[in-house]
Design a protein around this nucleic acid. Sequence first.
DNA 1: TCAAAAGTGTTCGTAGTACACCCATGT
DNA 2: ACATGGGTGTACTACGAACACTTTTGA
Lengths: 242, 242
Amino acid sequence: MPSAGSEPPIADGATLRVEVLSVVFQIRVPQTRNTPDTDDPSLCVLLSRSADGVWTLPGGGVGAEETLSASARRLVADALDVREIAHLEQLSVFSDPHRVPTVRTIASTYMGLVPSDADATPPDAAGWFAVDGLPPLAFDHAGIVETARHRLAAKLSYTNIAFALAPARFPMSALSEIYCAALGYPVDTTNLLRILSRRAVVVATGTVGKTGRNGGRPPALYAFAEKELRVTDEFATLRPPM
Amino acid sequence: MPSAGSEPPIADGATLRVEVLSVVFQIRVPQTRNTPDTDDPSLCVLLSRSADGVWTLPGGGVGAEETLSASARRLVADALDVREIAHLEQLSVFSDPHRVPTVRTIASTYMGLVPSDADATPPDAAGWFAVDGLPPLAFDHAGIVETARHRLAAKLSYTNIAFALAPARFPMSALSEIYCAALGYPVDTTNLLRILSRRAVVVATGTVGKTGRNGGRPPALYAFAEKELRVTDEFATLRPPM
DNA sequence: TCAAAAGTGTTCGTAGTACACCCATGT
DNA sequence: ACATGGGTGTACTACGAACACTTTTGA
């Protein structure tokens, strides 16, 4: 057994805190006018205002008998009255010893997604902010939001993750708007349907929606085939033979 | 503010332990004869034998002034004399309250990669095992290895992660063997070169290697253009316009 | 009948696979 | 010379992007 170098002191309970932070996204119109010009729906994050007036990601400590994901769900639901998280997944752990100056705090982070038709009205101490033009956030929370945003954009292209952002039934144009808001660039509705159909991610419901206020053909309504995350394009290259 | 349900007791220092576990991979011939038939190189994991004789992933507690990744490096290097980890990245956090029966232990896990030419000879209490046919592992460690294996296979197809498994210079046939061992199915050497060249992942060094023992043309030697992880195929679909 | 929105179809480029064929070396 | 391994070239396929054209509705 190689004798180790200097073994650093192990952080014990007195000095090590574990917190769970969640980046909760919804495609919606922001509540705050941080992005003025348009009223198109955009990618929004749920923020809560801490006691000292700083905006933070919802989060807190881990329950003794909970997994971390259960803690994340509880902390978001309890503190902010948002219970309709359709998908929750782990992001990175942030562990810089000084990311929180007072006590050494390790943050295990999650990304949560809320369907765009969910009426997720947060209480006064919270709000939905467009991810472009966030207010200053506490500690390293801004970086965590960026991580989540990247993860979401990446997964939109090779999984069915959009099931958690879309209503139960929707016209393809609405889904296209969701993709557009999350990715930050326009998406061709036509091709989106083709791609998601080929992968059996979305299926036609046979029903049609109502036409818009200025005329137009009534849209067919589609639905996601599954409401569990599924990787739909596992091997971009180097696929297994046969 | 919605009054929460029953707030569970927050796990404090007395009841909550944080450990770091690493799945360290190397493409090599296993030390143990757990896969008998062939002596082709295969994907191997570094395991260490605990005091009570059970095989475990290398790991331990977090240092007070360390990030988790620094802890992971230290724990692998100190305990097992493997210092040549060319790439280290986070995997999931495993947080089931009873994953370790005695004390509530949250495991933050990492995947580490060691180049196939590194002479990483572990001490007696450790060994390299082929991932197919591992001995019984402690707690949930077997599942953690599976997670790592999947992650590695996935990243081989859309990143340059193989830089951390290959020697500094190598013939394409050797790289092909590495991919084959990590993926579990044959990879066409010809096409591998084309793909990795187009993406500027590998470049020819201009040098040639020695021919094998039974004749054959001497191979051109290649090298990875970068030795930092880079995503080379970010958008399989829904790419940004222009 | 016209504008607006939705749906269909066509063309094009390109990445990846499979596989045949050619080259360089040791024995 | 020939076996052995390495390298080059050539179809073939399939997916996705772009975009034109047609259909269905409300005003």
